[in-house]
Design a protein around this nucleic acid. Structure first.
Length: 424
RNA sequence: GGAGAGAUGCCAGAGCGGUCGAAUGGGACGGUCUCGAAAACCGUUGUACGGGCAACUGUACCGAGGGUUCGAAUCCCUCUCUCUCCGCCA
């Protein structure tokens, strides 16, 4: 969430930024936050004042009792009673304002960075880079959902039988290809200086709030109600939450972590025409990179992360384009996001395989993730993350783009991991 | 799942219902000494929200949330977590 002081001090900039997301009542939203903070502050001051008074009075009563002046003490006790009453109401107000302010701040998305273009939706994203050419497929080329049946490598029907739609079963070379991709991605990340983390794939409520999945995306996560745990929608959640309530030392920065996890998404209401096969799943595998940076170098890190992800796609020989998302298409928490999309040649569609974002202090503020700078002051850090990469759509593109009469060619970087160079 | 013990500052660990934001030890940092280092000695060492140009200052925080009390780290209740023993078990 945004810091109140930022909203207060840079009110107009915040309003203008939010407008880039297409939020119409940005000014009202922002002014309400300032107003609630003002009310909160007033209540706080009043409460502090009364508390200060009762603290000294209470001390005096102690002294009076000690020196045997119990009558004086009794008088004082009576005199304090009124303060106690008013303190109770003020504390009630204070708690209510704090809660209202928090709830209100949860509703305000991050302010887009300077470079982010205004725009209402995906149509206004800007293609900033593209690489590779779509392969010329033969006349008998088919989309991946046909290929997986033909070669019997991924089975949706079996998944339906044991779990439900959107939970595929990977079989034989299909399963090995998954493992190969995961290992390849983790090894590459390690070479690029990321430390591998293997976190739990269920998290508690506090973690959900920490990275912003709660309260607004409640319905998108699988919720194990018996134990009040959530299945993670991405490794970003556990790996970023490792740093919740943490004050890092300067020499511990930058933090660069990578993690492989399965990801679980309910995708409530998002099933439609273009989500056949591997395009959208309830459970899928993803390798995620997470960085924690000082404010001054977080955008360098963002570029670095994009370059890293692009390198992966190039090694996998997949044609891709890089989009700078416009305000209206960016995630709630993000200040700037680049999406990488690969071209799936049989579907003739671009598939999003990675989203790399800088959240600036938006997540860190909720997480209370800070570091002590040279002057000994604690300062919020910037968090960033990116998929590197999400597997299903990568698999879809590999299958579709590399098909021929002789089967499916495996990209050469994966061959040592997979143990085969062709699915046929 | 059953029984018991516990949760205090960066770590270890003390704490009578009032003078405790908290003894003591360790660590870290600064200083004295030294050519330098070690040792020794001295000092510093939390977070949040306010007020103040500043020095400084008010309030809250001893797992979390309630309660008792003029006053709670200390008493009571609920929850969470950790440890030990037993049971079960990949």
């Amino acid at each position: 969430m945004l810091q109140v002081f930022v909203i207060r001090e840079y009110r107009d900039g915040v309003v203008a930024g939010l407008a880039k997301r297409g939020i119409k009542d940005a000014a009202t939203l922002v002014d309400r936050a300032v107003e609630l903070d003002q009310l909160r502050k007033q209540a706080q001051q009043k409460a502090d004042e009364i508390r200060a008074r009762s603290n000294t009075e209470a001390k005096r009563i102690g002294e009076l009792i000690k020196s045997g002046q119990s009558e004086e003490a009794a008088k004082l006790r009576v005199a304090i009673a009124a303060d106690k009453e008013s303190l109770k109401t003020i504390e009630g107000d204070l708690a209510s304002y704090e809660e209202q302010l928090r709830q209100h701040l949860y509703k305000i998305p991050n302010v887009p960075a300077e470079k982010v273009p205004a725009g209402a939706g995906a149509d206004e994203n800007v293609t900033v880079h593209s690489h590779g050419k779509a392969p010329q497929l033969g006349p008998d080329a088919v989309p991946h959902w046909e290929l997986i049946k033909k070669y019997d490598i991924i089975d949706f029907d079996l998944g339906v039988k044991i779990t439900g739609a959107g939970f595929p079963v990977y079989k034989g070379k299909g399963a090995k290809l998954q493992r190969a991709l995961i290992s390849f991605f983790l090894d590459e990340a390690e070479k690029a200086g990321y430390r591998e983390m293997m976190p739990p794939i269920m998290v508690n409520e506090a973690s959900g709030y920490g990275t912003g999945q709660l309260p607004d995306k409640e319905g998108q996560m699988y919720h194990v109600t018996l134990d009040n745990l959530y299945l993670i929608p991405t490794a970003e959640v556990p790996i970023t939450n490792l740093y919740r309530d943490v004050i890092l030392r300067e020499e511990e920065l930058p933090v660069k972590n990578v993690g492989y996890t399965p990801c679980f998404r309910r995708e409530a209401g998002s099933w439609g025409a273009h989500v056949r096969g591997l395009n959208r799943l309830h459970q899928f595998d993803k390798v995620e990179i997470v960085q924690i940076r000082k404010a001054e170098d977080s955008y360098t890190a963002l570029d670095e992360m994009c370059a890293y992800v692009q390198g992966l796609l190039e090694k996998l020989e997949l044609p891709y384009r890089k989009l700078l998302l416009c305000g209206g298409d960016m995630g709630f928490n993000s200040a700037m996001t680049y999406d990488m999309e690969v071209f799936a040649a049989a579907q003739q569609r671009w598939l999003e395989v990675s989203s790399v974002s800088n959240f600036e202090t938006y997540q860190a503020n909720r997480l209370k993730l800070r570091y002590k700078n040279k002057e000994g002051k604690t300062e919020l850090l910037h968090t960033l993350n990116g998929s590197a990469l999400a597997l299903p759509r990568i698999v879809a593109a590999i299958l579709e783009n590399n098909q021929s009469g002789k089967g499916i060619r495996i990209p050469s970087v994966l061959v040592p991991y997979a143990g085969f160079d062709r699915i046929s």
